[in-house]
């Protein structure tokens, strides 16, 4: 079982349970082949859905409370949304460790189009192993960053359906369809 440390240890603003969060993070990590300790910082004051990687080694993640929330039941924990959030972050870590992303900009340097393209590739892979999906939501985000065109939709399909692209390939597909 992957060791997961969640901060804070209890919540005042939302009805989250540290043990449940830890189980979901560990489950996602194991499905992705991550077997090292993970630290997860949660800002429970924020209902927004931001997330970022604080540290690649050891793995340190940070999320808004809203990134783990059930949108149907505000202030309650949402397993599907959490799998999506944690899964995207862990896949980004695995990608950067693979050697295929050595030429990728740092997270702070990625623009919205690059983030959207990488996320499509990540969520497509997550869906294929049974961890989330929301394909149409990702398509809408991708179109907002790349244009509402057939060219952009074809690029989306390539990113979504590919197994292990390199950063150069993601960037080529993303740049090639922007309007």
């Amino acid at each position: 079982m992957v060791q997961v440390s969640v901060k804070p240890e209890s919540f005042e603003m939302v009805f989250y349970d540290v043990a449940v969060i830890g189980e979901v993070v560990a489950e996602v990590a194991e499905r992705l082949g991550v077997d090292e300790a993970i630290t997860l910082d949660i800002d429970e004051n924020s209902p927004l859905g931001r997330s970022k990687i604080l540290s690649y080694d050891p793995i340190g993640l940070w999320v808004d409370g809203g990134a783990l929330e059930n949108t149907q039941r505000p202030r309650n924990f949402g397993q599907a949304r959490s799998r999506d959030t944690i899964g995207r972050l862990l896949l980004r870590i695995l990608d950067r460790r693979s050697g295929r992303f050595d030429d990728a900009p740092t997270d702070d340097e990625l623009d919205l189009s690059q983030f959207a393209a990488w996320d499509v590739h990540n969520v497509g892979r997550l869906e294929r192993i049974g961890l989330g999906g929301q394909r149409k939501r990702r398509l809408y985000q991708f179109r907002n960053r790349h244009g509402f065109t057939d060219l952009a939709d074809a690029a989306f399909e390539e990113l979504w359906g590919s197994s292990e692209l390199s950063w150069a390939e993601i960037e080529r597909i993303s740049v090639g369809c922007r309007t």
Binding site: T71, Q72, R135, K136, R137, Q141
Partner: peptide, 12 residues
């Protein structure tokens, strides 16, 4: 909603 990738009832 379909166009934007939203499920009916996705939000409270």
């Amino acid at each position: 909603a379909e166009h934007m990738g939203t499920e009916l009832g996705e939000y409270a």
